[in-house]
Design a protein around this nucleic acid. Structure first.
Length: 416
DNA sequence: ACTTGGGTAAACACGA
DNA sequence: TTCGTGTTTACCCAAG
């Protein structure tokens, strides 16, 4: 059991997750995105609004989708401009108080929040330093932010757990090795669904745009988080130890997609559809997140948030000993840090990395092989994704030249 | 009318 | 045994 569980309220208040939530208060001050942001944001609605329903024979959607793709993958302009609001760790912004549920409409703090449980969980997780929270901390966060639940029937906790389990947006990560089914797993947001969640957030009565957009400098934003990837690796560790073949990353990522609930349709699906247009030639085939589109999406989101190479990013959650040196002394502390510990590592991200390091370093050679294999698999996927992107970029180039040729001919004909 | 998402309740299993 | 956690099922309601 991690130190978070059973923490006294005083101690909990000292945790970064509790104090850094102040940034959330800004969400509610925010009216709408600056023009520049909207201009820079990939026009997800572009495809959706006009051409998404168009027949597939119309190549406009492809053209637009390649624009989308370009914005997403080939330049930072595809990013929502980073608002200071995303900086949930900012201390220089006055907090609105213990409860950030002070929206523009000044609703009573004790009235029911206008957010679904999924969004509440998302907010809670996103405002944790590690982007991972145990259920108990999620409860606490929600309670702190939405006093409504203090007096609400206890069923809401059931709903939270229900959502965590059922909603594929959320990924369970074992806190430490040897506790596969133990109490208190950590819950993370599947980065694949962050856009969906953000989209859903935007549709709430009190828009909180760019609220939880994490800075590009953060390696875990907009991509498969080190946490999640490391969980996949851990699963593979178990499989390896069992003598089974490690799951390919895409399989592991798709695991939750087989679930039948939540965020697969409606707003999430609509967003997904528009996004998938950018990566899938046939949108119809993408309903189940084809591997290529998934990897492409991943790659796109990766490259959109970070200048890191994909391999670098993959390596971030792998002990550097595996690619820096054999002693593992560089960049990671190697003490037996077997649990995510916010107190020891208030900045969070290194906590999980060190955990992964500790976990893997204890297991010796087979894990090195496994890590190497996983890296190779990830690399293969990335290559595949890059290939898809290049392919689409090529299509776009062709289309561009065709269009310009057509325009030129059009002009010539008009002149005649 | 139907589908879908969301909320809620309940039952059950598991581990601390 | 109790409690917390996680999963699953079922039902209801609202919105499209």
């Amino acid at each position: 059991m991690g130190p978070i569980i059973g923490m006294t309220p005083e101690k909990r208040a000292e945790t970064p997750g509790a104090e850094k939530v102040a940034g959330l208060s800004q969400i509610y001050k925010m009216g709408s995105l600056p023009e520049a942001v909207d201009a820079a944001r990939p026009k997800a609605t572009l495809v959706n609004s006009e051409s998404a329903d168009d027949e597939l024979t119309n190549l406009n959607w492809l053209h637009e989708s390649t624009n989308l793709l370009t914005n997403f993958s080939f330049g930072s302009e595809g990013l929502p401009i980073v608002s200071p609001l995303y900086d949930i760790e900012g201390d220089d912004v006055p907090s609105l108080g213990p409860s950030c549920y002070q929206n523009p409409e000044k609703k009573s703090a004790t009235s029911k929040p206008p957010y679904s449980f999924s969004l509440l969980i998302y907010m809670a997780i996103e405002h944790s330093p590690n982007k991972c929270l145990p259920v108990k901390e999620i409860y606490s966060w929600i309670l702190n932010r939405f006093p409504y639940f203090a007096t609400a029937p206890t069923g809401w906790k059931n709903s939270v757990r229900h959502n965590l389990s059922l909603n594929k947006c959320f990924q369970k990560v074992e806190r430490s090795h040897g506790k596969v089914n133990g109490k208190g797993s950590l819950w993370c947001v599947d980065p694949e669904y962050k856009p969906n969640l953000m989209q859903a957030l935007k549709k709430q009565p009190f828009p909180s745009r760019s609220t939880f957009y994490t800075p590009p400098a953060s390696p875990q934003s907009g991509s498969l988080s080190p946490h999640y990837l490391s969980s996949v690796l851990k699963q593979n560790q178990v499989r390896t130890l069992k003598g089974e073949k490690p799951l390919p990353l895409k399989t592991a990522v798709q695991k939750k997609r087989s679930y039948s609930n939540a965020f697969n349709h409606s707003s999430a699906m609509r967003l997904h559809e528009s996004d998938s247009l950018a990566t899938s030639i046939d949108p119809k085939e993408d309903h189940n997140y084809s591997a290529s589109s998934m990897t492409a999406q991943r790659c796109a989101s990766r490259s959109s948030v970070s200048s890191l190479s994909s391999v670098d990013e993959v390596y971030e959650f792998i002990p550097k000993s595996s690619h820096v040196g054999s002693d593992g002394s560089e960049g990671f502390h190697s003490e037996e840090d077997t649990d995510v510990d916010y107190e020891d590592d208030p900045l969070g991200d290194s906590g999980y990395a060190s955990q992964t390091c500790a976990d893997t370093s204890e297991k010796g050679q087979p894990d090195k092989k496994m890590r190497k294999q996983s890296c190779q698999e990830i690399d293969e996927e990335l290559k595949e994704a890059a290939g898809s992107l290049l392919h689409l970029a090529g299509i776009r180039t062709c289309l561009g030249s065709l269009i310009s040729t057509a325009k030129t001919q059009n002009q010539k004909q008009r002149k005649k």
